[in-house]
Design a protein around this nucleic acid. Structure first.
Lengths: 175, 175
DNA sequence: TTGGAAAGTCAACAACACTGACATAAAATT
DNA sequence: AATTTTATGTCAGTGTTGTTGACTTTCCAA
């Protein structure tokens, strides 16, 4: 039996940078933690979405439109990382159901700017409330130092281009 | 513009437990970080799987069989949280392709115990190597304290029943 | 005015989840 | 011994979400 728990082994190099010695076993634990945690992370919204006949893709669209009102379809595409056909199917239903409004751009009339309607805002709130509550609970259990570390590791785990999207939104709340 | 970055606000209560004051904005950042990080987390294995004509579901099966050799179908079902029909589709192809071996139980002949073949072990290794490398890199960038916090928050974010699975595997490497 | 970018549409397809119904074998219970 | 429960597998159908490829419309810009 391999002992892999407890505090990470660590050594201070002469330059001051700390070196980590991580066993494959420790890394596997991290991988499984991500898998199980992500399931917990999406469980609550999934239940709500199911109630209304929507899926995770609808949630993601609502979230990022809520986050950056007036965002264009193209911008949303690059954030979500799916094809326009895939996003369009989702957006179409949201627009038909009057949760999202699509306004033709004033400067560039090819672009469509996306906004949540009152109904869209309401659903986004319901989803967001549930997910934030789970996050808040996890943060509370883990404590402030853990939260800091959590965010740091997650940012390092993103693809670089996604870090860009993430950072942009951190700075200004929209792009 | 809302300022939401920097260190978490925190206060020491008389009892010694620290209270967290988290804005909705801070929690949203955590939510988005999870979203983007999970994409990065699965990106490398997804590319490899695509090469062999497999999907994420195959990866999960290979991972947990590798993790707990001889596990039963039922046990795998409860870990993965999918229906038996869904798991069976995946297992069938893996067994046909001779990546997984299914042995009838000795004590209880209804049960099937699952094992990776040499080929299965090889693919699992290839997937695992890629994913561990991403994890290792993120850990390295974030530092040891961050890693500890990362794991703590993830565990708190899981559903309780999944925490059980996770803890079991932490203790013994299998169940 | 012509080229190309942005947006949308249609069709086909695949992965992966679901439900429901049913079959088989073996263990457990009555 | 008969019945029920458990474990597994299978068939058929459905839904969400992703993909490619082809095509059109709109409209900015060189």
């Amino acid at each position: 039996m391999i002992c892999d728990e407890g505090v990470m082994s660590e050594r201070q190099s002469p330059g001051g940078q700390s070196l980590l010695f991580l066993t494959d076993e420790q890394l596997r634990k991290g991988i499984e933690a991500m898998f199980f945690a992500y399931r917990g992370f999406t469980a609550d919204p999934d239940r709500i979405l199911n109630k209304y006949g929507y899926g995770r893709a609808h949630h993601r669209a609502l979230h990022f439109i809520s986050r950056a009102p007036g965002t264009t379809v193209n911008n949303l595409l690059s954030i979500l990382g799916v094809t326009k056909q895939s996003l369009n199917r989702v957006l179409r239903t949201l627009i038909e159901d009057e949760l999202v409004e699509s306004r033709v751009g004033t400067r560039d009339k090819r672009e469509r700017h996306l906004f949540l309607t009152d109904a869209g805002t309401a659903l986004e709130q319901e989803l967001s409330d549930a997910q934030r509550e789970r996050m808040r609970q996890a943060y509370r259990e883990a404590g402030p130092e853990a939260v800091q570390g959590f965010r740091t590791v997650l940012e390092a785990m993103m693809d670089h281009d996604m870090q860009r999207h993430f950072t942009r939104m951190k700075d200004s709340g929209h792009d």
